[in-house]
């Protein structure tokens, strides 16, 4: 009888207010340990990359839903923009197109001339580039980094390492790709470095993002370096990631302190790092992030281009001519 009663007591569940399972502290320890394990795995090992890609792919519809209100707003304001405004804009765009057309005509002659000169010098061919137009979906949500998300991903053959450019200059680099979107680290991010050249005198350096305000730093340059306020910095192209000659930043401040052997040079990015919507994702002959190109050695992916040009000089009469080398060599001769 008593045993039965005891049994009944044991079976009786505590009211919901008290039924809490393991204590909060036990849960804290468990989940904190789990989080720390995740942090360690994700920061040191590469296992979670594919997991992240899949999960972001699943979350993509949610992101699209979240983007709809602003897109609707933009569409309606566009729809109700006045006739006059559109006419004005059209006029301006036509003028701009005319100016750019003239510049383009000169560009094609210059490109040909450049190619010819390179052949004479037997220099490497300028790397071929291809580009995709993308649109910035939203700004990165992590306040500690400078990132944006664009609406082009693996489905559009975007590869990590591609340069991201807008109408005015370089804005960043693709650092992570997802199925339908990809993450762009802006040049102002602390972790991004970009090889540059001062347009005025060809001085090469590396610009680092400052991280906090939207500026770039040019560290490790001696105090007497020939950089002036207002100098334009362009990409040097020696990294094989960014095409050469794209505008990056303008020097805005140079500080030389007597106690430091280095000059403190602050630059403002040219590209609308924070205010453009359309961007171009530029890849150089499918340059990949893994191929950390240096000046001296070209990554294997781009070796053929170098071989083609060097072939005639290195081997004047090749005994066993390789097929791919034979045809470009004859081409060069034909042109000469």
């Amino acid at each position: 009888m008593v045993r039965g009663f005891n049994h009944k007591l044991e079976q009786q569940q505590a009211p919901a207010f008290f039924a809490r399972g393991p204590s909060a502290f036990a849960r804290l320890v468990f989940f904190a340990a789990l989080s720390l394990a995740l942090i360690a795995t994700d920061s040191r090992l590469q296992y979670l990359n594919s997991v992240r890609q899949t999960l972001v792919g699943i979350l993509h519809p949610l992101q699209v839903i979240a983007n709809t209100p602003t897109q609707l707003y933009n569409a309606t304001t566009e729809y109700f923009s006045t006739h006059n405004h559109l006419l004005n804009e059209n006029q301006q765009l036509k003028q701009l197109a005319l100016k750019q057309d003239i510049a383009l005509q000169r560009l094609s002659t210059l490109t040909l001339e450049n190619e010819h000169l390179r052949q004479l010098l037997q220099a490497n061919k300028a790397l071929v580039e291809s580009s995709i137009l993308g649109e910035i979906m939203h700004v990165g949500r992590d306040p500690f980094t400078k990132k944006v998300i664009v609406n082009r991903g693996e489905a559009h053959h975007v590869v990590a390492g591609e340069a991201v450019v807008d109408a005015k200059g370089v804005i960043g680099q693709i650092t992570r790709t997802y199925p339908l979107s990809s993450e762009v680290t802006l040049i102002t991010d602390k972790s991004l470095a970009i090889p540059i050249q001062v347009e005025r005198n060809g001085l090469r350096a590396i610009a680092f993002g400052h991280g906090r305000d939207n500026t770039l730093d040019l560290p490790y340059l001696p105090a007497n370096v020939d950089v002036r306020k207002g100098d334009t910095l362009v990409t040097s192209g020696i990294d094989g990631v960014y095409p050469a000659g794209l505008a990056v930043a303008t020097v805005s401040r140079i500080e030389v302190t007597p106690d430091s052997p280095f000059a403190h040079i602050v630059c403002v990015p040219k590209g609308g790092v924070e205010n453009h919507k359309q961007v171009l994702l530029v890849s150089i002959a499918h340059a990949e992030l893994s191929a950390s190109a240096t000046t001296a050695t070209l990554p294997p992916a781009r070796m053929p281009a170098a071989k083609i040009n060097l072939a005639p000089s290195a081997k004047p009469a090749p005994a066993i001519p390789e097929k791919p080398q034979a045809s470009p060599a004859s081409k060069t001769h034909a042109r000469e």
Partner: peptide
């Protein structure tokens, strides 16, 4: 963590 694109586990912790 997924939405910010940071290292997994930071927000979780």
């Amino acid at each position: 963590d997924l939405a910010t694109g940071g290292i997994f586990g930071q927000f979780a912790l």
